[in-house]
C-alpha cells in the first residue's frame, strides 16, 4: 500500500511529506491548526541562527513544496482520534469540524513536535505576572516586522524600547524542579542570536545573558557566540537567574556572579526567558492514540536510538523531529528527510 499518514505540519512533517510524495507515495498530512509551519509559524520566528537567514527563506519553500504537490492531501484543522489494524494496513480516524472519516494507510509518520516550556510554573521569574518578563518565543514575534509591533522591541508594559535587557538561560531545562533535567539544545544559540538582533537594531541597549554553560555545538554556533561578545558587546554573566522582583514598576533580578563568587542584584527594563522545549499536547495525545512508547519526559521513544532512530516501538509507525526530544529547525528538516527514506524502504 502506497499511502502514508503524516501527523503534524511543522517543518519535520512538511519535509517528510514532500520527500515521500516525490518518491511517488500518496501522503495525507494532518495538522490541527489552520496553518502549516508548526511552532515556527505560530510564534513568527524571524531569523535563523547562525546565518541570520530570514525564516521565510526556509519555511516558504518547504510549505510551497507540500501545497503544490498533487500527491499530498493536506488536512488542516484536523486531528486523529483512533487507530485500528496493523502495518501495513492501518485504519485511522481523522476528525475535523465537519465530522469524522476513516482512511487506510500503509505507514504512519508522527511529527507532532514540541511546545515551548511554559515558565509560569517557575513562579520566581514572575512570568505572566510581570508584563515585561517575556519568553524567547515572544521576542521572535516582537522582532518580526510582520509581528504585532512591526519589528520593534517594544516592552509590553508601556511600549518603550528597553535600555537594559537581561536574558535568562535554561528556563525549564536542566532543572529537576520542573521535571526537565535535560538540555533544551537550542536556548543558547537562540539567545545569542536574539542578543545580536537587539544590539544590531538598538546599539545603545545593553544586553546581559545569565548562563551556566554556553553550549554552542551546532554549525557555526561558537563563531556566533564569539561575534556576540566581540562585535556586539553582549555581556555574558556566568550565573543562573535566580529570582525576578518588581519594585516600583522596576524589574530587578538576582543571581550569583559565580566567577567572582558574589551574589548580585541588577535592575533591568526587560527580561527574556530562554524557555526550553517540552513535548507538546499533540505529541502526548498522538502517543496515547497510536499506542507508542514515550520516554520518561513524555517525548516519543525510538525503537533503538542508534540503530532505528526513526522507528517507534510499533511496527509501521515512524517518528521524527522534535517530538523525540529538543531539536533545532535545521536538524528537524534533516529528520524529515531521514524518516521519509525509512518509510519508503519499509513499504517497498
Amino acid at each position: 500500500m502506497k499511502t502514508v499518514l503524516v501527523i503534524g505540519g511543522g517543518v519535520t512533517g512538511l519535509k517528510a511529506s514532500h520527500e515521500l510524495a516525490e518518491m511517488g507515495y500518496n501522503v495525507s498530512l494532518v495538522e490541527k491548526q489552520d496553518y502549516l509551519g508548526g511552532q515556527v509559524a505560530k510564534h513568527k520566528y524571524y531569523k535563523l541562527a547562525p546565518d541570520m537567514r530570514l525564516v521565510s527563506e526556509v519555511l516558504d519553500p518547504v510549505i510551497k513544496n507540500v501545497e503544490s504537490n498533487s500527491n499530498i492531501k493536506v488536512h488542516k484543522h484536523s486531528t486523529i482520534t483512533a487507530l485500528s489494524g496493523n502495518a501495513p494496513e492501518f485504519k485511522v480516524k481523522i476528525k475535523n469540524s465537519k465530522g469524522e472519516s476513516e482512511e487506510t494507510f500503509g505507514a504512519i509518520v508522527v511529527a507532532t513536535g514540541f511546545e515551548h516550556f511554559d515558565p509560569t510554573v517557575k513562579q520566581e521569574y514572575g512570568y505572566s505576572r510581570f508584563k515585561d518578563v517575556v519568553t524567547n518565543a515572544e521576542v521572535e514575534e516582537l522582532l518580526n516586522p510582520n509581528g504585532p509591533t512591526k519589528g520593534e522591541l517594544k516592552r509590553p508594559s508601556d511600549g518603550k524600547i528597553p535600555k537594559k535587557v537581561a536574558i535568562f538561560q535554561c528556563v525549564g531545562s536542566r532543572d529537576k524542579q520542573v521535571g526537565n533535567p535535560y538540555c533544551c539544545r537550542v536556548g543558547c544559540v537562540v539567545s545569542t542570536k536574539q542578543a545580536i538582533e537587539i544590539k544590531e537594531k538598538y546599539p545603545d541597549t545593553e544586553v546581559y545573558v545569565y548562563y551556566m554553560d554556553m553550549r554552542m555545538f551546532g554549525r557555526g554556533w561558537e563563531e556566533l557566540y564569539g561575534k556576540a561578545m566581540e562585535e556586539y558587546e553582549v555581556i555574558f554573566t556566568r550565573g543562573r537567574g535566580a529570582e525576578v522582583t518588581l519594585k516600583n514598576q522596576q524589574l530587578s533580578l538576582r543571581a550569583e556572579e559565580t566567577i567572582m563568587d558574589r551574589p548580585i542584584q541588577h535592575s533591568v527594563d526587560m527580561i527574556i526567558l530562554a524557555a526550553g522545549q517540552a513535548p507538546g499536547d499533540g505529541t502526548i495525545e498522538a502517543a496515547k492514540i497510536l499506542g507508542i512508547k514515550q520516554n520518561e519526559y513524555g517525548y516519543l521513544a525510538p525503537k533503538d536510538d542508534f540503530l532505528s532512530p526513526n522507528e517507534s516501538s510499533k511496527a509501521g509507525i515512524f517518528i521524527a523531529g522534535a517530538d523525540k526530544g529538543p531539536l533545532d529547525v535545521e536538524n528537524c528538516i534533516v529528520e524529515g528527510a531521514a524518516v521519509a527514506a525509512k518509510v519508503a524502504s519499509s513499504l517497498k
Binding site: C170, R174, M212, R240, A242, A255, E256, E257, T258, P263
Partner: peptide, 16 residues
C-alpha cells in the same frame, strides 16, 4: 546530587 555551579542558592541565601 552533583552541582551545576549555577549560583541559584547563593543568590537566594540570606547568610551569603
Amino acid at each position: 546530587h552533583g552541582c551545576l555551579n549555577c549560583g541559584t542558592c547563593v543568590a537566594n541565601c540570606p547568610a551569603a
